[in-house]
Design a protein around this nucleic acid. Structure first.
Length: 561
RNA sequence: GCGCCCGUAGCUCAGCUGGAUAGAGCAGCGGACUUCUAAUCCGCAGGCCUCGCGUUCGAAUCGCGACGGGCGUACCA
């Protein structure tokens, strides 16, 4: 029986006991208790039901425990502890059968597939093509990958998408910044424009451009060429940076592909909407051609311009068209991952989408994850960063300094998205020995070593399922199996919450338990081949589970270290 | 000013749909390698969970208010 099914069964039995004994209809939640001595799963239902039932919590708990009639092959015991907790213990046979399945099939088949073939689109990074990716994009790339991986592991069909703005003022500014560097090469002075980009990479591009096209180009006569060239190179650069992290998208979606048709249609649709305070879209000043969205009528603090007087859309407008496009593609779930600086925009876009498609539709299909910023710490001091001034640490630098994509990914994923975090460069660099990712990877490598050695002696993991339970009756074995059994449930919960950082906790728990087990229990024992094979099965389950969890996060599970 | 996120051990952070003695890593101190990888293990020490008020049988967790930090508050993205 899969772990989620075992919990469902216990929950249902307790619920019907509660119903028939007290006439209370209520879902019974089961939690993973904090301490192993509290059992394997636990319920507080008796404390919650005490009021409505008009009875003492302990009394209720005793009654439910005796009425529950749980199958003995799955549950070994049910007991009442403390103020009225109902604590359940799994049978060794159940733990062993799950362990066996993990050893032979890995983690994913052990989960009840919540997605079951439905489709999801995860949008992340979406940095505009103006320069290399920075440390913030790095956090986002890592997060997006992990969210996508988590959804895939729970049965969703996932697409990864990168949306970029290439039609706005920033593209123009980048083009002119390139033109300035280009002019500089040929001794002409053309200052980098106000608010322009000063990164050294523009100088390299200028040289390449001069090599291809000679020295006759001029700004603004050849502005289109400069802009196109800069954008192309920037996109190449970004893809290169992503490759350093091992990130690849299924689709790169450009803002300009929405202009003018999709954006026009979106604007028209918005224009048909009436709010209690008047039309959603209005012109102001009269006759100027400038169009505003009446966001205040949708509960937002300010109205916003969607179309400027000069006929150019503001960035919110293509954003809406882009989201409409995504909704139109029929995904069951869309996840947007943004930095916290996008909060306001994102809320405006969600409000306008809700006006177009209905609030229920939007909140059901669209989820926005806003992550907080990363503060870079170098020499114990916080580093100020600015993309345009180009005094920032790039994703590439970061991965190189941290030593590997694995370290970078794992470090970012140990914190939840909405927590600000400090990234200490010195720490990342020197953490080669006591970095949390190595701790986990080392456990995998250790197990691989054991399995290799055992195989060389002709011993392979047992495949008997629950039947080998008597051979794994030790306390260390049970602790590890108990943890393994809960992994599918914890992973599913992490997926439902879109919180990949929880997987690093699971991984850490598993590694701690395994290292302890390894220290105290000899796996391969020539005198006890059957016991050895049972233990090898446990090791294999542990390795597979960690490998699969690491895989979701995009981190390697090495065979040797 | 307003909106959102955050404030937990010396440092970096988990725990937050209220519940059983508040956890981890790093840093500190003390131990364990003739044994499948010591990138490991075992032990010690370290906390008015920012503060105050409230809701509750019960609050790190929920509400309100301070204080502190971050982000936003563009006709930039």
């Amino acid at each position: 029986m899969r772990p989620e099914e075992a919990r469902r069964l216990a929950s249902d039995r307790l619920r019907s006991a509660l119903s028939s004994r007290y006439g209370i209809e209520r879902e019974v939640a089961l939690t993973e208790p904090r301490l192993e001595s509290f059992g394997d799963v636990s319920s507080r239902i008796a404390l919650e039901a005490a009021g409505p039932a008009g009875a003492k919590p302990r009394e209720i708990a005793e009654a439910l425990a005796s009425d529950a009639a749980l199958p003995e092959d799955v549950f070994a015991s049910i007991s009442v502890e403390g103020p009225g907790y109902i604590n359940l213990s799994f049978s060794l046979a159940h733990l062993c059968s799950v362990t066996s399945a993990l050893a032979s099939e890995g983690l994913v088949p052990m989960m009840v597939a919540a997605g079951s073939g439905r489709t999801a689109l995860v949008e992340y990074v979406s940095s505009n093509p103006t320069g290399p990716l920075n440390i913030g994009h790095c956090r986002q790339a890592v997060l997006g990958e992990a969210v996508a991986g988590l959804l895939e592991a729970t049965g969703w069909r996932v697409e990864r998408e990168y949306y970029f703005n290439d039609a706005g003022r920033q593209s123009l500014l980048l083009g002119e910044s390139l033109a300035a560097r280009y002019a500089e090469l040929h001794g002409d002075s053309h200052p980098v424009p106000e608010g322009g980009y000063r990164g050294e990479y523009l100088l390299w591009w200028a040289r390449d451009l001069a090599g291809e096209r000679g020295s006759a180009l001029e700004w603004p006569a050849d502005s289109g060429l400069f802009v196109d060239y800069a954008r192309t190179r920037a996109m190449e650069m970004i893809k290169g940076d992503l490759a350093v992290l091992g990130v690849e998208f299924d689709r790169y979606f450009s803002e300009s592909s929405l202009i003018p048709e999709a954006v026009g249609e979106a604007l028209e649709a918005l224009g048909r909407i009436e709010t209690p305070s008047g039309p959603l879209i209005y012109e102001e000043p009269e006759g100027s051609g400038k169009l505003w969205a009446r966001l205040t009528a949708l509960g937002r603090p300010e109205d916003r311009v969607l179309l400027r007087e000069n006929g150019v859309f503001t960035y919110r407008m293509p954003d809406i068209a882009y989201h409409l496009d995504k909704f139109g593609r029929g995904y069951d779930l869309m996840v947007d991952i943004f930095g916290s600086d996008h909060l306001d925009t994102s809320k405006d876009v969600v409000a306008l989408l809700s006006a177009l498609l209905g609030e229920e539709e939007v909140s059901r299909r669209l989820r926005v994850i806003l992550h907080q910023f990363v503060t870079l710490v170098r020499d114990g001091r916080k580093v100020k960063m600015s993309t345009r001034a180009a005094n920032f640490v790039t994703l590439r630098d970061l991965v190189e300094e941290a030593g590997s994509p694995d370290v970078t990914r794992y470090l970012f994923l140990t914190r939840r998205a909405e927590a600000q975090m400090d990234f200490d460069l010195e720490l990342a660099r020197r953490q080669s020995d006591d970095n949390p990712v190595y701790y986990v990877q080392y456990a995998c490598a250790r197990i691989s070593g054991i399995l290799r050695n055992a195989l060389a002696e002709g011993l392979s993991p047992a495949t008997g399922g629950a039947s080998v339970a008597p051979l794994l009756a030790g306390a260390d074995e049970r602790s590890l199996m108990r943890l393994l059994e809960a992994v599918p449930v914890r992973t599913a919960a992490a997926a439902a919450a879109l919180e990949p950082h929880r997987l690093t906790e699971i991984l850490h728990d598993l590694a701690v338990s395994f290292h302890g087990f390894y220290q105290r229990v000899r796996v391969v024992d020539r005198d006890e081949p059957e016991v050895s094979r049972a233990r090898l099965m446990l090791c294999s389950a542990c390795r597979n589970t960690m490998r699969d969890l690491l895989g979701i996060l995009g981190v390697e599970a090495p065979e040797r270290m």
